[in-house]
């Protein structure tokens, strides 16, 4: 119990600047036509980290198995996230990206979506399987993976490596609340495992994401 309280106090700093000073934002809007695929370059921002994750069947897998070989769109999430501009926004975007990719089979088989949980305790492989539902089924070569980790200790290197913040909110008496804050980031990763774009809600639009995916697929594979 003491350890839990110490932990709560240790994260107290993190509660500072969030909900109390945020007002519901206006919905992000896309008021432009994104540049055509292949007319621009997405920079190599950073390499996706190494680590171990659990697939939806509970099998430990190298994280690299889900960040290489295809163009990957990856977002951290909680199955019970309710913030409109948090996980649900990413989820809706993923669903729309999936729908459009399935209409283009030549692309669909070269792309994967990955939803990776922040909460290994609650979001067990079973919970992730239930969350993914019908989207778990591989269709026209397209795949959407619903992953979790065995522990926070195995999650942390992935968060740190990708630069995804996540902090537990505490209440006025220093107790952890049932809220965790994070900036919504969605990572676009090329088949070699390099992060090539990091979307914030300000530009997480299916049109933009799809053009970026296609831009990466139009690149000549390295080493050829």
């Amino acid at each position: 119990m003491k350890r839990a309280w110490a932990a709560a106090l240790a994260v107290a700093w993190a509660a500072a600047a969030f909900a109390a000073r945020e007002t519901p934002p206006a919905a992000p809007r896309m008021d432009y036509t994104p540049p055509a695929p292949g007319t621009y370059r997405l920079e190599r921002i950073q390499r996706a980290p190494a680590g171990i994750v659990l697939d939806s069947d509970g099998r430990p897998r190298p994280f690299a198995q889900f960040t290489t070989g295809r163009v990957t769109l990856l977002g951290f999430m909680y199955t019970y996230c309710t913030d409109r501009y948090g996980c649900p926004l990413a989820y809706e975007t993923f669903v729309e990206v999936r729908r459009r990719l399935l209409a283009r089979p030549a692309l669909a088989g070269r792309v994967r979506l990955v939803s990776l949980s922040f909460d290994p305790t609650h979001d067990t492989p079973e919970a992730m399987r239930a969350y993914g539902g019908a989207f778990l089924r591989r269709e026209r070569g397209f795949e959407w993976k619903f992953l979790t980790t065995r522990s926070v200790a195995e999650l942390l290197p992935l968060l740190d490596g990708l630069g995804q913040d996540a902090v537990v909110e505490v209440d006025d008496s220093g107790r952890p609340t049932r809220t965790i804050h994070h900036n919504l980031k969605v990572f676009l990763i090329d088949p070699q495992g390099y992060v090539r774009e990091i979307y914030s809600p300000a530009f997480l639009f299916p049109d933009v994401v799809l053009n970026d995916i296609e831009t990466l697929l139009l690149e000549r594979p390295f080493g050829r």
Partner: peptide, 11 residues
């Protein structure tokens, strides 16, 4: 603490 977390808020 994660076990106690029941909701998630993204900034």
């Amino acid at each position: 603490l994660f076990a106690a977390v029941a909701s998630l808020f993204a900034a």
